[in-house]
């Protein structure tokens, strides 16, 4: 493995300025990845530094645990966050996570890190009001750690292998938890085959985020029809490499979730309602087919706070949403 060179600095400011100069940050200051901190992170995850978390063959990149730990320290993570970061890195570097494409694309695709299981509450991962935005250390730094790995290990550097025309603020960090306590809904990681007590991370690369607002529907079908029309306004082309396993993530907001609870709709009920309607043939340029191979490819996640009659659609880039257990 490649061991990072060690540098000595006279002050924190000098270190930060040098990291800016070397292009090792996302444009924001970082925490110093001292050998002691990196070792503490590795110990917390029970990993040796040379453990391989994943590769990007097209870039001849191998990501080790030591590299991930250094970037997690830089992102501002606490040691106890690191096992979750490791799961996110593994998920993103899964072959069908398609790192090379989703971090290099002109479209500026972002990576949503969705956390399930007991670790959410142990780390204080926000899943309610404001969960997409700033103010929550676990959300901010776990998402940032993945993005720093993409930059510093996977060479996703703007103007180099990151060819985004605009990119997106979601590329600084985009991490939130599922609000598993909001209902009896089966959590995302359980739907994907893991035990409820198993903590897990799902990484979904998204081409764009679309807010599906609906303040007027007063029942589950009305909300679903709004989700369908908003997804179909954008369309999902599908991809032969991904086959029938493609995904779209629907983050169901508090106000919409209420109607599903009141009428006893499960996630499976929503998937069965949406799937044929999404896959119906296009009728116009603004009513396009959203090609999702199977109902289970529609990933339903409960999150967000009260007030807005809105849900969010995380429309996919060329990748599968990959779920990895947090060990």
């Amino acid at each position: 493995m490649t061991t990072a060179a060690q540098h000595a600095y006279d002050s924190y400011e000098a270190l930060v300025e040098d990291y800016f100069e070397k292009g090792w940050t996302d444009g924001l200051p970082i925490m110093p990845p001292t050998p002691e901190k990196v070792a503490a992170f590795l110990e917390r995850a029970g990993l040796s530094g040379d453990e391989v978390l994943g590769t990007v063959p097209t870039r001849e990149v191998t990501c080790t645990a030591q590299q991930a730990a250094a970037n997690a320290v830089m992102a501002g993570c606490l040691p106890e966050y690191f096992p979750t970061v490791v799961a996110a890195v593994r998920a993103h570097l899964h072959p069908k996570g398609n790192c090379h494409s989703t971090t290099g694309t002109l479209s500026g695709a972002a990576q949503a890190v969705i956390i399930n299981g007991p670790i959410r509450n142990e780390l204080g991962v926000a899943s309610g009001a404001g969960c997409f935005g700033p103010g929550f250390r676990a959300n901010a730094t776990i998402g940032r750690a993945l993005r720093l790995v993409i930059r510093n290990v996977c060479r996703g550097i703007p103007g180099f292998l990151d060819r985004a025309s605009y990119s997106t603020p979601a590329r600084y960090s985009f991490c939130f938890g599922e609000n598993e306590e909001a209902s009896e809904w089966e959590p995302l990681h359980v739907q994907r085959g893991l035990a409820p007590e198993q903590s897990a991370v799902t990484v979904h690369s998204l081409m764009k985020m679309v807010e599906a607002t609906d303040f007027t529907s007063r029942n589950a079908e009305g909300v679903c029809d709004t989700l369908v029309s908003n997804i179909r306004a954008n369309g999902i082309a599908g991809d032969s490499w991904l086959g029938e396993d493609g995904n779209v993530v629907i983050v169901v907001g508090h106000e919409h979730h209420r109607f599903f609870n009141e009428e006893g709709w499960s996630k499976a009920d929503i998937q069965q309602y949406l799937w044929p309607r999404l896959n119906a043939p296009a009728t116009s340029a603004t009513d396009r087919m959203a090609r999702i191979g199977k109902p289970e490819g529609i990933l339903i996640v409960a999150a967000g706070g009260a007030g807005m009659g809105a849900s969010w659609l995380l429309l996919p880039h060329l990748a599968l949403a990959i779920t990895e257990p947090v060990s």
Binding site: F215, E255, G309
Partner: peptide
């Protein structure tokens, strides 16, 4: 409180 939703786009 509910069933009136928080944002007042009510019939």
């Amino acid at each position: 409180d509910y069933p009136w939703v928080p944002i007042a786009i009510w019939s």
